[in-house]
């Protein structure tokens, strides 16, 4: 079952093609990440999904159908450019946003109190929004986004401006949403968060899909022809080894293999070799950051084909 299905959607602003024939699906109950450099079309895609913008062509189904008031009530959205009303109390502000999503005033208030306590803002509940620090406002905004217990939560840059402690808190809450079977879509360019949190991902560049699928699969797809090893012995003496570098950060040696030699072959050879004692072996999967730089940095036509190991 899909929470969002985007099929062949295009959108132009004047001469600029912001989104170009984009198709992807977000499955119910997953954390889905949208990645891409600035101006890649992430925000435009989200805005089209939410009916803030209309696509020039293509079809979007959200929570099982075309968008409507009832469906909007089941979505929680935290835009990148976000704020709260400044001159009312945090509690009033959240309660108001809840009633705009169709909650009764009493339910909205009760739920706001519960959530504000959860994000550690119980003391600030009756303070005016304008007196809150930026980090506190961010947490209040997150609380507002999930106030009406939405089936689909869409967050643009969820962790920007948050300190590590609060990042952890929001992360936990996002996991909780997924564990309840609800869906989270986050748009970000913080790769390590995606690696850690997302089940599946979409990378867009200049309005087009460049990478799409399970995060694990994407990393494996870009796996270099190299392994990280620790132990005793001369790795270079093994067959098929092109060169050996030491990676200080990983506290391991990176062994790059020549074309035609698999990592399994290397492992077998190393295990059989009498003078080599292997204490650690790991296939060198590139970080998403490496892939991102490779894909986004490369010209559009080469993206996705030019893959090469990138050691350090």
């Amino acid at each position: 079952m899909n929470s969002l299905a985007v099929s062949s959607v295009s959108k132009s602003f004047g001469a600029t093609r912001a989104v170009d024939d984009l198709s992807f699906e977000v499955r119910t109950g997953e954390i889905f990440a949208m990645l891409g450099p600035n101006g890649a079309g992430k925000t435009t895609t989200i805005r089209m999904a939410l009916d803030i913008l209309r696509p020039d062509s293509g079809r979007i189904e959200i929570l099982g159908g075309p968008i409507s008031q009832q469906i909007k009530d089941r979505i929680g959205y935290l835009p990148e450019e976000r704020g709260l009303y400044r001159n009312i109390t945090v509690l009033d502000c959240l309660a108001y946003l809840g009633t705009l999503k169709g909650m009764t005033s009493r339910d909205a208030k009760a739920r706001a109190i519960e959530l504000l306590a959860r994000v550690g803002l119980d003391d600030a509940m009756n303070k005016k929004v304008s007196t809150l620090s930026r980090g506190m406002q961010q947490k209040a905004q997150f609380a507002a986004t999930v106030l009406h217990n939405p089936d689909l939560v869409i967050i643009d840059e969820p962790f920007s401006g948050l300190d590590p402690v609060n990042t952890l808190l929001i992360k936990e809450m996002m996991y909780e949403i997924r564990d309840k079977g609800q869906t989270v879509i986050m748009s970000t360019h913080m790769m390590h968060q995606v690696e850690e949190m997302a089940d599946r991902m979409l990378m867009v560049s200049e309005g087009s899909k460049v990478l799409y699928g399970r995060v694990e699969d994407v990393r494996r797809q870009y796996a270099s022809h190299a392994v990280y090893v620790s132990g005793e012995g001369d790795w270079a003496s093994l067959p098929g080894v092109e060169r050996v570098e030491h990676d200080r950060e990983k506290r391991a040696d990176l062994v790059c293999l020549a074309e035609g030699n698999s990592t399994d072959d290397f492992l077998r050879a190393a295990a059989m070799h009498p003078d080599i004692h292997l204490s650690r072996f790991e296939v060198a999967l590139p970080s998403l950051e490496d892939i991102f730089i490779e894909v986004a940095g490369a010209p559009q036509s080469n993206a996705g084909t030019g893959r090469k190991a990138n050691g350090a």
Partner: peptide
Amino acid sequence: AEEKETRMVELMMTSI
């Protein structure tokens, strides 16, 4: 104007 200044408006547009 406050809706614009506080950047609430994009959020509002997904509710009403």
